[in-house]
């Protein structure tokens, strides 16, 4: 199979829109709520999940024929947990501020449904390269949604983006206030709901 044959392209591009893990497959919602209070952790989380999903897909796909059936899930978990631990250690060493913000949530990637979902549904039955692409596709699809939610939440909840004050001072002086609920997970669930709403209104075939 060529590097980016039709099937491979589908694995890569599908999760970006019509098979999006968060809004279509409805996986990985928990971390989508937790880390999106600001844009920067959302981006970092999205990238982390992409890398971890891609590589865990790759590794599991490589060893898929040798895994004993009875400990299949455990093996997948161990691989994911090892990868997540490594990523978390790397973040703590090289991007300490971000790792403080992400704190527990990086560890929670292990339980992120997207990873287990893709491992079982795809990596166990497909060759390494398509699995890798599928992992990247799902990770980026997830990251896109996180960025959208994080953008809205940070803008309306803190008046800033990536830490830079975007809403000018004169707005605040005239009585504008930051919306405190935007920094709460409850609001992010509503925003994800709105994204699903818009997504399905636009893609009628999903209704």
């Amino acid at each position: 199979m060529s590097l980016l044959s039709k099937a491979n392209r589908e694995a890569l591009v599908g999760p970006l829109n019509l098979n999006n893990p968060v809004v279509v497959q409805v996986l990985g919602i928990c971390s989508a709520l937790a880390v999106t209070a600001q844009l920067e952790p959302a981006i970092v989380m999205g990238l982390s999940v992409t890398i971890i999903t891609a590589f865990s897909n790759l590794i599991i796909s490589l060893i898929r024929n040798s895994i004993p059936n009875r400990i299949r899930i455990i093996v997948q978990l161990v691989v994911v947990a090892a990868l997540v631990t490594i990523v978390s250690q790397v973040l703590k060493a090289f991007a300490y501020d971000v790792s403080v913000q992400l704190s527990v949530y990086v560890g929670l990637i292990i339980t992120n449904c997207i990873l287990m979902g893709r491992l079982e549904a795809f990596a166990m039955m497909n060759k390494p390269w398509p699995s890798f692409l599928d992992g990247i596709g799902n990770g980026i699809g997830y990251a896109i949604i996180l960025v959208i939610v994080g953008f809205v939440r940070e803008l309306l909840g803190s008046g800033s983006l990536l830490g830079f004050q975007v809403i000018p001072e004169w707005c605040y002086e005239h009585g504008y206030m930051n919306n405190g609920m935007m920094t709460m997970p409850a609001m992010s669930l509503i925003i994800v709901g709105c994204v699903i709403w818009a997504h399905r209104a636009y893609n009628k075939e999903l209704q």
Partner: peptide
């Protein structure tokens, strides 16, 4: 036979 007991145990041990 990847589903055998011995294989499973060895596999788990090596992986860990």
């Amino acid at each position: 036979n990847t589903n055998g007991n011995i294989y499973t145990i060895c596999y788990a041990a090596v992986m860990v």
